[in-house]
Simulated scan of single mutants.
Amino acid sequence: MPRTPQDKRALGRLAEDDALAYLLLQGLVLVQRNFLCQGGELDLIMRDGKSIVFVEVRQRSSQNFGGALASITPTKQRRMVRAAQTWLLTQKSLPACRFDAVVIDGKRMEWLKNILDM
């Protein structure tokens, strides 16, 4: 039976909850969750020391078709960068930044740092 959009949103929210809990345990601090702007979206904005970390959370039931990491396409990457630029415009000073991903394939979670080569 196909999943409804509500099911997908709920699963996405649970994946974000799991990723957030994991990153908090690693010492990061939540700055903002689900930042939306005209050009894109950021799942989690975290602070790691003095750096701002823009985190994309992706979940797939398996690694078939490349898994969760493969779903961060060039188009998605451009949207992440655009959203980050929009968020940074609201800051008084420009902090050091990076883009990370938390990918969940089945029951396996992995935190990948600095996924965009900017």
Rank of each mutant, 00 (worst) to 15 (best):
R108L: 09
M109Y: 14
T73S: 15
W87H: 05
N64F: 01
I72C: 09
I104Q: 15
R78K: 12
S93R: 13
G67I: 01
R60M: 14
R98I: 08
V55F: 04
Q26C: 12
S51Y: 01
M80V: 13
M80K: 09
F35L: 08
Q91E: 05
F65A: 13
V55C: 12
M46A: 02
I72S: 09
A83F: 08
Q91A: 09
A68M: 03
D48H: 11
R78W: 05
T73W: 07
L89T: 12
G27K: 10
V31C: 11
L88A: 06
A83R: 02
V102Y: 15
W87F: 15
C37P: 08
A101N: 14
R60L: 12
S62C: 08
A101F: 11
S51T: 08
T90P: 00
R108T: 11
S93F: 09
L36E: 04
G66I: 02
G106V: 02
V31F: 12
G49N: 08
L69D: 00
G27L: 11
G66N: 07
G106Y: 01
A96T: 09
P74C: 07
G39P: 01
V55M: 06
Q26E: 14
T73P: 13
A84D: 14
D105S: 13
L88H: 05
S71L: 10
T86I: 01
Q63N: 10
L36Q: 05
L30P: 04
R82I: 13
I52L: 14
R33N: 05
L30W: 05
F65T: 07
M46V: 05
I52A: 07
N64I: 13
Q77S: 14
T90Y: 01
L25P: 00
R33I: 04
A68D: 05
D43C: 07
V31I: 14
E41S: 02
L24A: 07
G49K: 05
I45C: 05
Q59I: 00
D48M: 04
L28E: 13
L24T: 09
Q63V: 08
I104M: 14
W87I: 03
R78Q: 12
R82F: 15
L94W: 02
S51W: 00
Q59H: 04
D43Y: 06
M109T: 14
L25Q: 07
A101G: 14
L88Y: 08
P74H: 12
G66T: 01
L24Y: 09
S71T: 13
